[in-house]
Amino acid sequence: MKPRTFDYLRAKTLADVFAVFEAHGDEALILAGGQSVVPALNMRLSEPAILVDINRIPELDRIELQGGVVRIGALCRHETVRRSDVIAGHVPLLVQALAHVAHPAIRNRGTLGGSLCNADPAAELPACALALGTTMVVESASGSRRIPASDFFIGFYETSLEPGEVLVAMEVPVAGNGEIHFFDEIARRQGDFALAGLAAVAKCDGGRLVSVRFAFHSCGDRSLLSPQLSAVVEGMPNGAVDGAAIDAALKGDLDPPDDAVTSSETRLHLAGVLVRRALAHINSEADT
């Protein structure tokens, strides 16, 4: 199982990357952590003419607190983020979620930017990005733009990145006072892609759920927010959410895949179990 041939360029700057895209268009592929790209290459499922290795571009691997946001460089490795004090203090959701991502040797190499750009519907990080209200910072030869996570994941392994654009950083709003982060997923084995997963960010006030963003993975062709579920729970007293309304909201917003092992209905059921766990967690956290 060997990849098809390709050329290779180690980019020293973003300008190098833009130049390769200029020359090769969609025949060029960015190599970051490579933990999804390389298996696809090895299996000959992907055949770029050239790999642009961005691993040595300086300044893409920083984690910085900038006012109300944490800016996470796209090249930050999963394991670096998981162990970062800044992340632990301001984006605890990511710490929780990253423990579920694959295995240590994969997390040592895999990058946050790579995972987000891969937009695997079963991956944890896109759901986190949605729940956190992350802004994607994108650069290209013609300048930079900022894309809200909710506009970034547009389909099955598909993002709104335009040809020639490179994701350089994510800006995550810091968790405010009283903000509760919840992550859980149902996976058959440690580190597996989940049958269903949920990232939730909640704000409570005076015993009521003020706002909750629920983002699901493995429950559609991409990671999905459930606005109907948010509408059901927002404004409700903690612990008083109607189960039937939850299930109806999930059914309305999610469209889980149906495969030979796990049915769409089961994934929907598991999403409901996760929502109940999340609400229980939010309830207990809000009480304390």
Partner: peptide, 13 residues
Amino acid sequence: GRTARGCLLFAIQ
């Protein structure tokens, strides 16, 4: 200094 999969890196990298 950190573990990695040898099959998911290219030598040239």
